[in-house]
Design a protein around this nucleic acid. Structure first.
Lengths: 352, 352
DNA sequence: GTTTAGCACTCAGTCCCCCTGAGTGCTAAG
DNA sequence: CTTAGCACTCAGGGGGACTGAGTGCTAAAC
């Protein structure tokens, strides 16, 4: 059977309406739309075809139709109208962006909150350092007897810190020395440069603080890649409760719980080779708990060695057009924010 | 009417049972408890008295009784049995504590998560610097042209950072100078010491970076007190959904939403003059949205210039004994953790 | 061939009613 | 003071009957 223009139009209207009302859509409702010049009977025939083709589903015989996953897919790919942000809306979004993004402290948390607020859905934000990041500065500070604080600054402008408890007392002097050595020999070096020889050299130069070196270097390299390298935040989980499909508390709880877990950590993989915005409709999600939900994601640029992602989780019946538009807006804003103001001269070594 | 020992016993049993079952408690159920040597009719008489005295409520004529706010209050203050943590439980809690508390990075977030997990309820954690805190070290770093990162370390071992965007370019040299000046003249000084004269002196010494001084000092002092001075996290909001009283999504949503807001920021005031654990039952809460919930809070020591609080929010029908015990355990663990170790930490053995 | 009017049919949701059983209050006997 | 007994209350659950939105199909109209 062929997917005629008219069938597409009908499908589009059904999805649009269903997104608005969350109720199965009947033929009459569609027939009565302003620019639909056919009777309900005709629509009914078309709907029957769309049902047969797998784009619609029928909860029970005497009910209207709802879009199937395939239907949403088609809608997202071809049918949905672009949502253009209005002037007012842009202003609003940009205002909340400016307000929140003053301090770069808990960046990912703030971004997640912002996105969640703008879409009224649970949001995820993530930033992962890629292999290009290097150390920029080490700082070691005495903090009470037996404790030191290690502060590491990365080329990505992140500042990480850790409290290290020591089995043995260390002199302030030795700490200073170690700091100097680290700053001299481990900054601005790409990861490939961390050879055993380098490590050995550092240990030899570190004097009395030599036994600290492994701990410090371990934490620092951990921070650079792997575990500490991914920074992720989830916000607004309970906004899901506002959606009619989650009136059932258990259902909501199951989804929300899975948002906290690492079920999300494989999302970036999906984005790997994608650009722009990616939509995962219901069963397209790998995670079992998300089979009933859709995920919309966008990448953004953090320049240097980092790459970010923001995303939103919601019922398959979400307003894809609006969510996509707003998400893109934030992605752009973030990219802009991180873009180094076009720089003629690089302060440090020019290669990357 | 007098509150005899037997009445108290009956009340205690009712609250205990209601906490377990979340169902109105009938006279028969109480009469059948192992150490209750009276018939249901007797219990019924006692219950009628307790109702008249305001310790119980009756949802409708032909139903059992549930504790009123006053009933809970009495229960918490006098009746409830202490809950002793078992060996296994202690081990479990301490294991999760050790696991999470390795890195002091996002401490409050982690504490909140931990407490929430241990109590299966939404949890709040908060740390507020008191006026004793001082600066320990300043660090200024170039971050691309026109941006600098300010890192401030406090006597509380906290590390704060901010990205500052500059209207004018600054030389690396000047930044170094400014850093040195700040470290020389503003560290280890109590807040009263920040006089206009001091500020002036700093500006004069700062050379070309003089115009940076106000921005930097503003941020830093802001961080020390006021806004940045309170660090708060909420976790596990959706655990509320597990409680039968929040099967109603709207109700749950109302409470959960209010947890994010600053409705909580006046909780510390309540703790001001309290020691140990404080319980707020239902209507004792000031915040309107929490009238139906109870809050359990405990202070903990962070030594130096800081003071912390952890708390839990749940239905009035929560297991006060257990929650209180676990909360206290964490408060102690935290206090211990922050206590300057007299001696390098031994694997803690026989004591206690 | 396509569109539409008409009609019989289906079925989730709702209202209503009855029944059940847990729980009460009261009274009178132990 | 305690308890057995009894009449009474009422939320919750189950089972029809009804309603109305929506369908599928057919036959007439375009």
């Amino acid at each position: 059977m062929e997917l005629t223009e008219r069938k597409k139009k009908v499908l589009r209207c059904i999805v649009d309406l269903y997104i608005r009302t969350a109720e199965p859509v009947g033929s009459k409702a569609i027939a009565e739309l302003p620019d639909m010049n056919y009777s309900s009977a005709t629509i009914r025939n078309e709907m029957a075809d769309l049902l047969a083709m797998g784009y619609l589903e029928q909860p029970h015989t005497s009910a209207g139709r709802i879009p199937s996953a395939a239907g949403y897919r088609l809608y997202v790919d071809e049918l949905m109208a672009d949502y253009r942000l209005s002037m007012d809306e842009t202003k609003l979004l940009s205002a909340s962006f400016d307000e929140k993004m003053q301090q770069v402290d808990k960046l990912m948390e703030k971004v997640a909150k912002l996105v969640s607020q703008a879409t009224d859905l649970p949001a995820i934000s993530m930033a992962a350092r890629n292999s290009g990041a290097t150390f920029k500065r080490f700082e070691l500070i005495m903090a009470g007897q037996g404790n030191i604080i290690l502060v590491v600054m990365l080329s990505t402008d992140e500042v990480l810190n850790k409290l290290i408890k020591l089995p043995i007392a260390v002199e302030e002097m030795d700490l200073k020395l170690l700091g100097a050595v680290l700053n001299a020999s481990m900054t601005d070096i790409p990861q490939e440069g961390f050879t055993p020889e380098l490590l050995e050299r550092v240990i030899r130069s570190a004097g009395n603080a030599a036994m600290l070196v492994p701990v410090v270097v371990d934490f620092a390299t951990d921070a650079l890649r792997g575990k500490g390298g991914t920074n992720m935040a989830v916000a607004g989980q309970m906004r899901l409760l506002g959606q009619p499909e989650y009136r059932d508390v258990d259902k909501a709880q199951r989804v929300i719980t899975s948002l906290d877990e690492e079920a999300l950590s494989n999302l970036p993989a999906v984005m790997q080779n994608e650009n722009g915005t990616k939509v995962l409709v219901g069963p397209e999600n790998v995670a079992q708990e998300l089979k009933d939900t859709s995920v919309v994601m966008t990448k953004f640029d953090i320049g240097d060695g980092m790459q970010g992602m923001i995303g939103v989780v919601g019922p398959t019946r979400m307003d894809y057009a609006k969510v996509t538009a707003r998400l893109s807006y934030f992605a752009e804003s973030l990219s802009k924010m991180f873009a180094k103001p076009e720089q003629p001269q690089l302060p440090e070594g020019a290669d990357e």
